[in-house]
Design a binder for these strands. Sequence first.
RNA 1: GGGGAGGUAGCUCAGCUGGUUAGAGCACGGGACUCAUAAUCCCUCGGUCGCGGGUUCGAGCCCCGCCCUCCCUACCA
Length: 526
Amino acid sequence: MSDSTFYVTTPIYYVNDAPHIGHGYTTVMGDIITRWHRQRGENVWYLTGTDEHGQKVLRKAEENGVSPQDWVDKLVEDEWRPMLATIDVANDDFIRTTEQRHIDGSKAFWTALYERDAVYKGNFEGHYSVSAEEFVSEEDVAEGEGDDEGFKVSKLDGSRVELVAEENYFFRLSDYQQKLLDLYESQPDFIQPESARNEVISFVSRGLRDLSISRSTFDWGIEVPWDDKHVMYVWIEALLNYATAVGYGTDPERFAKVWPADIHLVGKDIARFHAVIWPAMLMAAGEPVPHRVFAHGWLLVGGQKMSKSKANGIRPDELVDTFGSDAYRYYFARALTFGSDGSISWEDINARYHAELANGFGNLASRVAAMIGKYFDGVLPATGAVTVPEQMVIDVVAKAVAEADAAIEAIAPHDALNAIWRIVDELNGYLTEQAPWKVAKDDPDSDRLATILVTAAEGLRVLAVLLNPVMPMSSAALWDSLGAEPSLGALDAQRIDDVATWGQLPAGTTITKPPSLFPRIEAPAE
RNA sequence: GGGGAGGUAGCUCAGCUGGUUAGAGCACGGGACUCAUAAUCCCUCGGUCGCGGGUUCGAGCCCCGCCCUCCCUACCA
């Protein structure tokens, strides 16, 4: 395990969409998990990217009078890459499905399917909705009214559908029902959380039909290697990115090292594609299946699923502009149970920003640095004897570290933050009880004052390390304030395994009061 | 129709295989303190655990029925 690569993916985002906090959510959570694993000293590979083929993109490009390639290039550079920068994501790779490596890899994958007889040519006929880019089943097709008079429309979204009959290639998904059920049985955490697993098992248990996986009515896609009249159906092709990005079909050595993925993070709407079709395709191609598919819930704004069409989509940069990327990352990780639906609101992020980040954590860093500055001229003194209250702090820290680490392992960043925050609360309480300002006045010659402040500084050191995966900016500022780098090295080089070891900051370390980590925002924007 | 998840303090949520007076955070009210970003610490207030039955010595957790919300039920990134 230690010499393999911890490989995590997000869905690749459809370029036509405008980035909203839903995209940001998945990506940030993956970033927190992967940064944490790096902080453990593991080899990590974090992939995200964009899905750029398909009829919808083609038509959009035509509407805008540009070539599809120019269209997607623009969207990627103007919208998607900037979003990653906005929310401070440290992905190792960014794959675009229009890249040569993906094209070559996808063709290689299809060739493998073909050679293994997992694909055959058949006829497919049905009502196709261009805007939804899907075939609509018969029971969901209705006669149009009003503007759509004379057309058939989809009951699902009201879009017009066209009767399409074409020769397609099919994937023998029906062969995999039992194999998939066996997978869910033998690898119980393959699809998480439990609710997603139940739905997937129920779906597969009802039987699987073969899947139409190519299109021949347009050409904005990857050619089927043995038949240039067909392009791969965008959904099927998009799934392949997880393999092609790490060398499938182009760099076998690299692929063997990184694959299978440890975690595919997905929204629960696309859990089925990842937990049913994707593993079946991998089995068909003779490749190992991923370890885990984790389906997270919806972000609810005012009780409704956030989405572009409901006009309650929020762009990540709106929040980041006010609260900063650290608070953004913190909020989504802390306020929501990853895997369940959860409510978000401007009021809530504002409240948590002030209560937890500014008053709780930021102020703690501030008061400790201020006292070391005031009583010791900013030079960390040598500690005196550790007494019962100090030991309690040490114990709380050790327990919190272990719990946070276990929570990340369980893909529960919210629990990790809850555990970490017990350190914040413990330190604030410890300072109030020990009242170093009082000791400074009443008993300035004892070593109690030094002991108390060293203990608090050590606590901050731990927090800087533990929070680095979640809030890299402020953690770096805190690390800097603690003057830790000269003696302990870079923040990123600190290891979770060692972080709870007490007494790492040496006496003589220069502590400076940091600028407010999370300054209060007096007039929250509407 | 079938299946999944949920309905717990004003708000957002915890409550594992049923066990004494149902918890947390925030908000509200009171007090302490002054190192700090008027921050911190302590305490109070606050719930018929959707509704109605049942099983049990005992149920928020189990069973039955009902109401409400959301999701899945194949090619919706």
